[in-house]
Design a binder for these strands. Structure first.
Lengths: 202, 202
DNA sequence: CAAATTTATTAACTTAAGTCAATCTTTTTC
DNA sequence: GAAAAAGATTGACTTAAGTTAATAAATTTG
């Protein structure tokens, strides 16, 4: 984990501005404040943005790499989701309630991340009234995806789930190890192997 | 569906105040405003608080009864969750983004519900600054539960899931039809029958 | 680059979930 | 309260997931 210099952060911030906040009215001054609060951090493969039982104090925006969101059920890992650029996320319930996180966030490749600390978000709210919307929007981006996967995974067969994943996100399947994909699908790596074999025959 | 008279609502509101908002500083004036914005609604069994493809314009607080949150995957229903009193909920992504809801909210028994419309929430924010926290808290209550079930269901066997449900929420299992429980567990009613049989033998 | 570690595949076996269909039970409705 | 509808159980059959274990392939690390 390594904090990046501020001039890089500036370029990145512009990217955010143009891609994610097109519809929000913000003044130049708002953006100056926003920009000054960003911390850009790089993570190595397998490093943790957040460990289980830590308290979440950041909102993240992934710019490069892949991040895995997972938990433990007994001794087994369960992968909720994979995050790709450009996406906002964090461990929301831990962030909001200041309780130990039940989930971990781990980089699966070298990753570049914008981090907005709780403190900087509070500063943003105080100093840049117009940017309040930006803050809310970030939280929303981090939350809106929660109503989807559950239903998918639990209404069709593991094979159908895998085929759907292949279809909707081929680069995920190519770049992420099978055990993580199996953990995402709620099956064993052995089952995933068999599914792949079955598919290749048909 | 039937809107209840205001005097009943007053008593109910007191219940909310004492049970849910103990830690939030609100003035008497704030509470007067809050109270005036509440609509109390009763639903018959099987009636919908929200249908799929409707736009969500409310936040609900369930006072009596059971509500099921579900969706369709192809032709099959999938039940995300059951709500019991006293609980806040809505179709959050639809409410926030004003897009057609992918989930339905259905009363499984006669139900009594407080409804806070989008409009009344906006009024609350404008008129009662201290009550802003109340509004946020309601949303939080509605959201915090989203990081849990997924992992449970997908890391152990259907039988273990059922046993856990029996253990953690016996009244749910007693009061709700098997096909809904099966749909919650991601299995068929036939499988649930067999699981029950197996358990009763051991 | 070689050794060590991690990841992926395959096989043999057991177990249980899905499906289809029949029957029994409970609940709803007029 | 009788008829109809909805829900629950059981059986027979097929299919695939879990488990354990062995091996092969790929990646990491010194």
């Amino acid at each position: 984990m390594k904090i990046i210099n501020q001039s890089d952060a500036e370029a990145i911030c512009t990217k955010i501005q143009t891609t994610l906040f097109q519809n929000i009215q913000t003044t130049e001054k708002d953006w100056d404040i926003f920009r000054s609060l960003i911390k850009t951090v790089s993570y190595n493969k397998n490093e943790f943005l957040l460990q289980i039982n830590e308290i979440e104090n950041n909102i993240y925006c992934l710019l490069e790499g892949v991040v895995r969101k997972y938990t433990f059920k007994g001794t087994k890992e369960y992968t909720f989701d994979f995050h790709f650029p450009v996406k906002f996320f964090n461990s929301y319930s831990s962030y909001r309630q200041k309780t130990p996180s039940t989930i971990a966030l781990q980089a699966l490749s070298p990753a570049l991340v914008l981090q907005f600390s709780r403190k900087s978000m509070e500063q943003l709210y105080e100093q840049a009234p117009n940017a309040k919307k930006t803050g809310r929007k970030m939280i929303e981006f981090a939350l809106i995806n929660t109503e989807n996967k559950d239903a998918k995974i639990n209404t069709q067969s593991p094979e159908d789930n895998y085929l759907e994943l292949l279809n909707q996100n081929p680069k995920l399947v190519q770049n992420i190890s099978g055990r993580h994909i199996a953990s995402y699908l709620g099956i064993t790596p052995e089952s995933l192997s068999r599914i792949r074999k079955r598919i290749s025959k048909s």
